[in-house]
């Protein structure tokens, strides 16, 4: 198993612990990765709002680079997966689009993309390429009696024309991974909804209300922590949790805290493999994961 590893801006920026924990986990699992060190942003669905072809050009460059290496791409970000994966599907399917983009890409970079690359999120690789049985063999510290609320977010599921791994109406891959790690997957309605991060600055009220709803839902159903395949969801739910907690306490009373650790997917996998929270970069979270770590250690 070998992939061209596309870290995405967040794992190389505001959530370096995602990159750190990914490296630990893939190394232990024997997944070989070649990091695309000179990678560019996928556009996050924002660049295409200004200029759709510009977003295609950026993603075609990434795809063409992996094609030269003859490797499929591994992403660790739900948003990158949706945007880069979606661009890939469009470029593979629409020959006119591919020709138009290649013409411009070749002029400026010398590269062109022939449609020969697959884009897979680490979550999908764990479930399908590696397989849950193989994953279980590496679980040395099963997360028994820990309840984990899976939080998919938007772009790893929708639009399903761009993703197509899980059924967007009823996704199961995170639950399967959580079970393979020995933990209990929490059932709650919020798991496929928006974390509010896309309007974090411009519409603070909307973003905060969403965080309050998602986390209180996970908490009401008994979640000890939430896990997400998307660092933007992590940022939305972790960075904005203090404000969401104020909102929650105003509604429910001062004794009602949220205190919900938000884990990146490879951090959860790493904990079940016996890596310490320091090795997985969890001290970088704004919401203190110590109570969760203590509960895991006691088990």
């Amino acid at each position: 198993m070998k992939y061209a590893y596309y870290p995405g801006c967040a794992a190389k920026g505001a959530t370096p612990e995602l990159h750190q924990s990914t490296m630990k986990v893939v190394d232990r699992l024997g997944i070989e990765v070649v990091e695309l060190e000179a990678f560019n942003c996928c556009g996050a669905g924002v660049i295409s709002e200004a200029d759709p072809d510009l977003a295609y050009l950026l993603n075609a460059r990434t795809l063409a680079t992996a094609e030269v290496l003859q490797l499929d791409i591994m992403t660790v970000c739900g948003t990158c997966q949706g945007v880069l994966g979606g661009a890939n599907k469009a470029l593979q399917k629409d020959e006119d689009l591919r020709k138009r983009i290649n013409l411009e890409l070749k002029k400026t970079t010398g590269l062109s993309y022939n449609g020969g690359v697959k884009v897979k999120h680490l979550q999908w690789i764990l479930v399908k390429d590696l397989g849950l049985e193989a994953l279980k063999k590496h679980v040395s510290h099963p997360l028994t009696d820990i309840s984990i609320a899976p939080f998919y977010g938007c772009y790893i599921l929708r639009p399903d024309s761009a993703t197509g791994f899980d059924d967007w109406e009823n996704p199961v891959s995170l639950e399967k991974i959580i079970k393979a790690l020995g933990a209990f997957p929490v059932e709650y309605d919020s798991r496929t909804k928006c974390c509010g991060f896309p309007v974090f600055l411009e519409k603070e009220e909307i973003a905060t209300e969403m965080v309050e709803k998602r986390i209180s839902d996970a908490k009401d159903q008994g979640g000890d922590a939430m896990v997400t395949p998307c660092p933007l969801c992590h940022m939305g739910l972790d960075f904005n949790q203090e404000r969401a907690e104020e909102k929650h306490q105003a509604k429910m009373g001062a004794s009602h805290k949220l205190e919900m650790p938000i884990l990146h997917l490879p951090q959860l996998v790493g904990l079940a493999m016996g890596f310490s929270s320091e090795e997985l970069g969890m001290k970088r979270h704004l919401v203190n994961p110590a109570p969760l770590i203590q509960k895991i250690d006691v088990m």
Binding site: A14, A38, K283
Partner: peptide
Amino acid sequence: MLFRGKAVMPFGTPPQGHEVVRAIFKGR
């Protein structure tokens, strides 16, 4: 965020690969 090592420097040397991206934008 700064204290948790989450804030990247707003200004400084751009990362590897930025020249190619600049060329793509210029062409656009």
